[in-house]
Design a protein around this nucleic acid. Structure first.
Lengths: 228, 228
DNA sequence: TCAAAAGTGTTTCATTTACACCCATGG
DNA sequence: CCATGGGTGTAAATGAAACACTTTTGA
């Protein structure tokens, strides 16, 4: 029962991005070292000595992919003894959201490449990272039912249809446009602006909205019931 | 950036028990070693080398308190660098449910004492265990809103009022007895028996029910909307 | 025969769902 | 002037909330 063990600790991040055209995507990096060299994997790495877990994730995202994260929460800890061929390595996985239009991905020395992948079309992943991604997708699908979502994923100003498409994508089913708008107005998280969409692909240009941040974060705490 | 670190890994469990008379309680043990010797703490301990995290929790609960756990899920991982005076020790916390009437607590060599404490009246706890308990209570209160609860906490057969009191205790507000029953019938998770409560403290003896396990676990997966 | 809790049903109110028509723009 | 998506409203159905009376037991 000697407590001192040969255990190492790492953090991995499942970062979701969204664009109205391209649906929900996950940030992946291409590994430059063994094991699983040249395979796609979640960004992440070992926790340094005095570092908090959140700091470790933030650092790895910045150095491996050049991503400044908007939102981060702990997802789950994966600890199967055989999950890493190098030995006993526990991974504390995090769940993140960003707006991908805010920056350009920058692969660094730690990663051969960094790219967004549609969640419906992922490559084979290193380690148990597919399992981690599945857990994160479930979290995302649940989250949308009991708290508002979108602030961290969309542009500052957006047409309501962008938000609606986000909900449709995450929930993976169609939503009535008019009832959706009614519901959002009821929650009071949207503020209209006297601006319109510039160049719609077709049809009448939509009014632009932004989130009422105060109300948004209040409802995030209190919880909502989204059941359209 | 040397990956090999002086990090140790432990698991801790927040186990909830319920009795209709005594409300919701948490299992605590009294420490026999430093630091925090003789203080109350969550049951838990270091993870052994080839052991899964779940096995570690199950083992510690059995050896420290004699508890066979009914239900266990991962809660959250606590990793603040200063959370343990002995060094960098990460705790993976688990959330458990048991029916306390099914066995007797048995403090062992690892624990001076093991007892149930009402969640509204907890002693000061070792380490950051109060924070862990708070996280678990939040999880319990949320859980009850989107999945059925009770199977692991109640006797095999029980009057509906026991289940109702459980909901009232967790939600911390009164519930209309008749609407509650209607809702449960609607979900179809209860099966009536031709048996009655033996010695009610007063009034008409209640019919006994048990859970329809198939339907219960199906709804646990699908999710419910409990908003009485 | 009284108190205490269980069993059963109805009315009211709010929310959700389904659906129709008009408006603004680009080609 | 037509196709395309945006903006607004209303009727019907569903589900939640409030509430009253009867039944069975022990004391």
């Amino acid at each position: 029962m000697g407590p001192r063990q040969d255990i190492r600790l790492c953090v991995d991040a499942v970062v979701f991005g969204y664009t109205a055209e391209k649906s929900i995507s996950v940030l992946l990096i291409k590994r430059t070292i063994d094991p699983f060299i040249h395979d796609w994997a979640l960004p992440g790495g070992f926790v340094l000595n005095g570092e908090t877990l959140e700091d470790a994730v933030t650092r790895e995202l910045l150095t491996e992919a050049g991503v400044h994260i908007n939102y981060l929460e702990q997802l789950y800890t994966f600890g199967r003894p055989e999950r890493d061929p190098r030995g006993r390595i526990i991974s504390i996985a995090y769940f993140g959201l960003v707006n991908p239009t805010n920056f350009k991905l920058a692969a660094s020395s730690d990663a051969e490449d960094a790219r967004w992948f549609d969640i419906k079309n992922l490559p084979a992943l290193a380690f148990d990272h597919s399992e981690i991604v599945n857990t994160a997708v479930k979290r995302l699908r649940n989250k949308i039912r009991y708290e508002p979502i979108g602030f961290e994923l969309l542009d500052k100003k957006f047409p309501i249809s962008d938000l609606e498409k986000l909900y449709e994508t995450v929930l993976d089913r169609p939503i009535d446009r008019r009832n959706f708008q009614k519901k959002m107005n009821h929650f009071g998280i949207l503020m209209g602006h006297n601006e319109k969409q510039k160049h719609p692909s077709a049809g009448r240009p939509a009014k632009l909205y932004s989130f009422n941040e105060e109300r948004y974060f209040q409802l995030k705490q209190e919880g909502i019931m989204f059941e359209i």
